[in-house]
Amino acid sequence: MCSVCGCGQAEIVADKDQREGGAPHVHDHAHPHDHDHDHGHGHDHDGDHDHLHDHAHHHHDDGTVDYGAGVAGVHVPGVSEERIVRIERDILSKNDAYARDNRRAFAAKQVFALNFVSSPGSGKTSLLARVIAALKDRMSVAVIEGDQQTANDAERIRAAGAPAIQINTGKGCHLDAHMVGHAFAELAPPSGAALFIENVGNLVCPAAFDLGEAHKVVVLSVTEGDDKPLKYPDMFAAADLLLLNKADLLPHLDDFSVGRCLANALRVNPRLQTLIVSAKTGEGVDAFVAWIEASAARRAAELARA
């Protein structure tokens, strides 16, 4: 089981043939397994004393053992101090370390990475296909597609003219930085490319997992309701840009207010940028393409300065 995402069967699908071949995703990080650390803890100092921690306690003549200078430096009534180990490690630190690696790898190739997040059915893939058509003559685009199952989305992206890799997360509810690192290495986009990472459709979990992207872009469709930013605030807080999609449907909706929706989103994240788009009619796509080019140039300038 992948130790980062907890999923049972994440796989990266480069193309149809590989998918059918199974293409098992290689996990090279340490998985927890049954170590039987069977060393004598008898403290009899008979020479066979191979545990690793330092014994900072003192054996007094009267037979008492003083743990006052033990590893933790704390006392808990009824517990030998030696057996308490202070850790203070962030639970997301594993993913964050992979995300840092990804960020370095993206920077080394001047790749501008965006992490697209939304609920299922918001129109991410259709929007990306439209954006690729508008952008591909000016900038190389490569796409990492995340879904629990099927390679349908990667096929749609390839049909739109960009190389794509599908990650199937199996039971996993989000992409993690480790999966993305593998997919990026396999995809090997040219220097200066835009990398679109389409996350698993889920408005909750992907918010907590940094993939190494320059920006999270949250896509919300007008049919989902204008109170979504308040119901799922984490995602809107984590994003830098909100694309309000399916704007072509607005004339048919009498209970969706664009103003209310954006006000809710800005309440959660006052720095959020917003664009209104339609993957169907192409409304707002040019504005988003301009945002991508401007943001990529800005990112490159920041990296050059750093």
Binding site: V4, C5, H39, D176
Partner: peptide, 28 residues
């Protein structure tokens, strides 16, 4: 259900630290 992934990370961190400290078993 990302709590499953987070729990995996908790257990993995605990096992790493247990190995580092020569522990036989994690109690708490």
């Amino acid at each position: 259900m990302h709590e499953m992934s987070l729990t995996e990370s908790i257990v993995e961190i605990a096992l790493e630290e247990a190995r580092r400290n020569g522990a036989r078993r994690v109690r708490r």
